[in-house]
Simulated scan of single mutants.
Amino acid sequence: MSAAVEVTSPADLVGTDFGPHDVVVEAGLLQLFTKVVGLSDPLHHDPRAAAAAGNPGLLVPPTYLFGLERRHPEVPRIIGRLGIDIGSVLHGEQTFRYHAPAYSGDVLTFRPRFADYYEKKGGALRFLVRDTTVDRAGEPVAELRNVLVVRAAGGPA
């Protein structure tokens, strides 16, 4: 029998650092992603084209880092600590700022932090803001911001 998860207020978690998590950018998964989202630039899915352009691997498209960040084991644990029903979560916003390109074969370190929490519509909509830095061997690659909107029970759809 597993221990009960203690539900925490989102406001109490603001400033929480999730800790670093390394992810290898796998070429096969990157190729699948580019196919699914319809990216036609061969630098994202053709190793020969990437090599001919002088790249060390397939070029990672901007939004792909958000998918890699979700592999961080603390992200679902925090959602669980908040007692959030994943069916009540909406994608609110995402932004990214790149400092350097990323490629297949890279080992990227993700460092998410619970940056902010606020409510609207009398608490019917709760906004969870997560900021993440991404680096490769200590060199900055990107800064990500993800805003999740959680609908309270009986709140607006």
Rank of each mutant, 00 (worst) to 15 (best):
Y117M: 04
R130Y: 01
V25Y: 05
R70M: 15
L43V: 14
P42A: 14
I86K: 03
G19M: 10
L58E: 02
G54P: 08
G123T: 00
P101V: 06
Q94W: 03
V23Y: 10
T34K: 08
E119T: 06
V147T: 07
G38V: 10
P156T: 05
K121W: 01
F114D: 02
G122K: 00
T95Q: 12
R130V: 11
R48T: 14
G154K: 02
E93S: 03
G54C: 08
I86C: 04
R48I: 11
D85F: 04
A152I: 03
G54S: 07
I84H: 02
V150I: 06
R145W: 13
E93D: 08
A27I: 04
E26Q: 14
V25C: 09
D41M: 13
L29S: 07
F114V: 09
G80Q: 13
F110I: 12
I86G: 05
G54I: 04
F18T: 10
L39H: 14
E119A: 03
G19L: 10
P101E: 02
L43C: 14
R71S: 15
R71A: 15
H72T: 05
G57D: 01
E26I: 15
P140M: 04
F110R: 03
V14W: 04
F66L: 13
Y98Q: 07
S2P: 14
T95Y: 11
A115C: 10
R130Q: 11
A3D: 12
T133F: 04
R71V: 13
L144Y: 04
L43A: 14
G28I: 00
P73I: 08
R151I: 00
D46K: 11
F96H: 03
G38Y: 13
T109L: 02
E69G: 14
P76Y: 13
R145H: 11
P73T: 05
V23E: 00
E139L: 00
D85V: 04
L29D: 03
